[in-house]
Amino acid sequence: MQHTNTQDTLVGLFVAAGIAGLFFLSFQVSNLSSFTQKATYTVTARFDNSGGLKVKSPVSAAGVKIGQVSSISFDPKTYQSVVVLQIESQYNTLPDDTTASVFTAGLLGEQYVSLEPGGSETFLKDNGTIDITQPAIILEKAIGQFLFKAAEEKK
Rank of each mutant, 00 (worst) to 15 (best):
G51E: 07
L107G: 13
T78D: 14
A61N: 14
K65H: 06
Y41R: 09
L147K: 11
D48K: 10
A150Y: 08
V15M: 12
A20S: 14
N49R: 00
L13M: 13
S70C: 08
I130D: 00
V29I: 13
K154H: 10
S81Y: 06
A136W: 01
L85S: 09
P95W: 09
T36H: 09
Y91T: 04
I143K: 02
V84R: 09
T6Q: 12
T93G: 02
V43L: 06
G51R: 00
K155P: 02
K56C: 04
T40F: 11
L13E: 07
T44N: 04
D126G: 09
V29C: 00
S71W: 03
F146R: 04
I132W: 05
T99P: 10
S60Q: 14
F23M: 10
K149V: 06
G12P: 01
Q68S: 14
V11I: 15
T44K: 11
L124N: 10
F35A: 01
D75F: 06
A16K: 11
E116D: 11
L25F: 13
S60P: 09
F123H: 09
A17T: 12
Y41G: 05
F74S: 07
S114W: 07
F27A: 02
F14G: 15
P135Y: 01
I132K: 14
L107T: 14
S50M: 06
A39Y: 01
L147T: 06
P117D: 02
T133A: 00
V15C: 03
V59L: 04
L10M: 11
S30F: 12
F35V: 10
A61T: 15
G128A: 07
F103Q: 06
T104V: 15
Q7H: 12
Q7F: 13
M1D: 05
T133L: 00
E153N: 07
L32R: 05
L85W: 12
G51D: 08
L53D: 09
D96I: 05
S81D: 15
V102W: 00
T99C: 09
Q86Y: 03
F74R: 00
G128H: 10
V83D: 10
K65R: 15
S33I: 10
G106P: 15
F47Y: 09
N92L: 06
V15G: 06
A17N: 09
V29S: 04
A142Q: 07
D48P: 01
V64K: 14
G67C: 13
R46K: 15
N31M: 03
L115R: 01
I138P: 05
T9G: 02
N127W: 03
Q28P: 00
S33G: 15
S34P: 06
G21P: 04
F27L: 14
L13C: 13
L108Y: 11
F74D: 08
E116R: 12
V83R: 00
V55G: 02
A45E: 05
D97V: 12
F103D: 11
